[in-house]
């Protein structure tokens, strides 16, 4: 019996050893690890990039900026390229988490509209290449909501109890509540934050569910009447279900930019720059924009878009609609308070 056990023991050791060896003797192809929002790219673009440059792309997704930040900050992940939003880029620059991009390697940067360069989050334009932009607003089903939707207040209307989807994202949900109360969504005033918390807890009994990307399918399937969504998702949802309509409430909302960045310590900076440049090629940028529905900062890609989309204020809102909108700022010290508020909202029993 002992002999048999020993025999199998040795076999096991050999197998484990060989497996580890096989793992080490990897491929000669360069690798690039990309970390992007879920459902935020035309995936055929990745295959094309792999083929063209003979680079393996490992593609992972996240659902909120915070999730991405925590994963990268926690260490252990070795992503090369990520797609954070404005305030998160600001925070990551401040915490020295990003690598400066060599723009000589990104000739396609010339296609990016000047409106989207040198924005507050990256004032000297050293770290980021804009990918998409958009707003946060309310999408509603015209068959289920008969009154005009123009204010965040409707999300607190008892009439729509259990007919509302909220975003499971701290900055967005607290932000729109602050806007409804007439405050800035970058407030540093703890009293205003407390008020927003009370409002959000009050709203809990009306909310059907707090979700992320699942909202899209749920709204198309008419699971609820109202939802807080990002503008590009609204474009997609309206395409799938014509009864849906998107508005930016009159109190104002969040105007945001997502950009491509290279993470500090990336071992494949050259490949990362190739990738970012590739994403800015007119044809590629167009395909991504067309597929995901968000608004592009790319001049050539915008020209190729269907005029119907260009005239739709969901993706390309008027200056008037954007008048009250604010861009998120990184709130270094006070951000813990936002986290605490959101944790307490989620934990509260209504």
């Amino acid at each position: 019996m002992r002999k048999i056990a020993r025999f199998f023991g040795i076999i096991l050791v050999v197998v484990v050893f060989l497996t580890i060896l096989a793992g080490c003797g990897g491929t000669s192809r360069a690798q690039l690890k990309v970390y992007n929002w879920g459902d935020y790219i035309d995936e055929s673009v990745i295959d094309e990039f792999e083929e063209k440059y003979n680079i393996d792309v490992i593609y992972d997704t996240f659902a909120t900026n915070e999730e991405m930040y925590v994963k990268i900050k926690g260490g252990g992940s070795d992503y090369d390229v990520a797609f954070p939003s404005d305030y998160m880029i600001e925070r990551m620059i401040r915490e020295d988490m990003l690598e400066k991009i060599n723009f000589d390697n990104i000739p396609n940067y010339k296609y990016i509209d000047d409106r989207f360069k040198n924005l507050d989050y990256d004032p000297n334009n050293e770290y980021s290449v804009p990918y998409m932009w958009g707003t946060v607003g309310i999408i509603y089903n015209k068959k289920m909501v008969d009154e005009p939707v123009d204010s965040w207040q409707i999300l607190w209307n008892e009439k729509y109890a259990k007919q509302i989807f909220m975003l499971d994202s701290s900055r967005d949900s607290i932000g729109i509540t602050l806007k409804m109360l007439g405050y800035s969504l970058n407030t540093r005033n703890l009293d205003e934050l407390e008020q927003a918390k009370e409002k959000l807890i009050e709203q809990k009994s009306l909310v059907l569910s707090y979700m992320g990307d699942d909202i899209k399918d749920a709204m198309i399937g008419e699971q609820a009447a109202l939802a807080v969504v990002w503008s590009g998702d609204a474009v997609y949802m309206k395409r799938e279900n014509p009864d849906l309509e998107y508005v930016i409430p009159k109190e104002g909302s969040n105007l945001w930019f997502d950009a491509m960045v290279i993470l500090k310590g990336s071992k494949n900076k050259k490949e990362a720059e190739l990738f970012i440049n590739f994403m800015c090629e007119p044809e590629i940028a167009f395909r991504n924009t067309d597929y995901i529905g968000y608004s592009t900062p790319h001049i050539e890609a915008k020209k190729m878009l269907d005029p119907e989309i260009l005239n739709d204020t969901t993706a390309y809102p008027t200056d008037e609609e954007l008048a009250n909108c604010e861009v998120f700022e990184a709130l270094s010290d006070i951000i813990q308070e936002y986290d605490r508020v959101w944790t307490e909202v989620k934990a509260a029993t209504k």
């Binding site: 909120t64 915070e66 999730e67 930040y69 925590v70 994963k71 900050k73 926690g74 499971d168 701290s170 809990k204 909310v207 059907l208 569910s209 707090y210 979700m211 986290d339 959101w342 944790t343 989620k346 934990a347």
Partner: peptide, 21 residues
């Protein structure tokens, strides 16, 4: 549960995945 009825497991997950505390 739709993120309403958060249980202690969710609370822990949230601290690690979202808040980073």
């Amino acid at each position: 549960g739709g993120g309403h009825y958060i249980l202690v497991g969710n609370l822990i997950e949230q601290q690690f995945m979202v808040v980073g505390d």
